[in-house]
């Protein structure tokens, strides 16, 4: 007979196995992350096998984490992957204020502002100490006519400019609030210190928003500067 604890062990072992990438998978995800960060506003796509295996918001953390990295995964009752991720990568768990890598799944969207407020930003002399934050959102689109986002009351239109963007690039994001972008603006106000952000969706999209990107957010009829 299988006990609950035994079932728990099996489930946990399966979660850890899902978090263990081979070299080719790690390289593929790392390349996507670099591409996304080098060309803010261009949407990249995770390989299908990664999408099917685990929540995409965790993939960048798995690729960057090792025994010398401190990670924080925003937990909810439906989303408890931090322990499995630590077992798979050997990374150390950390509070937000000292974490190198932070993941916020869509289920914990209400924590985004709090995380962006207290995540490390580094200093002018050590900007590399700024946190890398991965945020799970509902949808990302580069097409203004995307009906699902346009009709959503939470959809935001982002006008991006800065390094890696020729003139201007427009992206639609659903699942993050205007207030969250204002917090990101405050965190990235003193370049080169700041926070680099990736946004991911459950259907495998990834969007990079490095600290150097100038973001103008439009919500419904309003327009607000976010960096």
């Amino acid at each position: 007979m299988t006990s609950d604890l035994d079932t728990d062990s099996r489930q946990y072992a399966a979660k850890v196995a899902a978090c263990r990438f081979n070299a080719l998978e790690s390289q593929a995800v790392f390349k996507l992350m670099l591409e996304a960060l080098s060309r803010p506003g261009l949407i990249e796509q995770f390989p299908l096998e990664i999408q099917h295996r685990l929540p995409c918001v965790l993939a960048p953390v798995i690729v960057l984490a090792d025994v010398e990295t401190r990670i924080h995964i925003a937990q909810t009752s439906q989303f408890n992957w931090e322990s499995a991720l630590i077992s798979a990568t050997g990374a150390r768990p950390s509070v937000i204020s000292t974490a190198d890598l932070i993941a916020i799944p869509l289920e914990a969207a209400e924590l985004i502002s709090q995380v962006l407020e207290s995540a490390p930003r580094g200093t002018a002399l050590a900007p590399e100490h700024g946190a890398r934050v991965i945020i799970g959102v509902r949808r990302i689109s580069s097409h203004e006519a995307e009906p699902a986002i346009k009709e959503s009351s939470h959809g935001l239109k982002l006008r991006l400019s800065g390094p890696g963007v020729k003139d201007e690039r427009i992206v639609w994001v659903d699942g993050i609030s205007l207030q969250d972008f204002q917090t990101l603006q405050r965190s990235n106000a003193h370049f080169p210190s700041g926070i680099d952000v990736w946004m991911t969706t459950d259907n495998g999209q990834i969007l990079g928003l490095p600290r150097s990107t100038h973001i103008v957010v439009e919500e419904h009829s309003s327009k607000q500067e976010a960096h």
């Binding site: 035994d6 062990s9 099996r10 072992a13 850890v16 263990r20 025994v67 010398e68």
Partner: peptide, 15 residues
């Protein structure tokens, strides 16, 4: 019977 290997032994370098 109840033993599960969560992470099989793996060799790596640490600082």
């Amino acid at each position: 019977e109840e033993l599960h290997v969560i992470c099989p032994p793996e060799i790596g370098m640490i600082m």
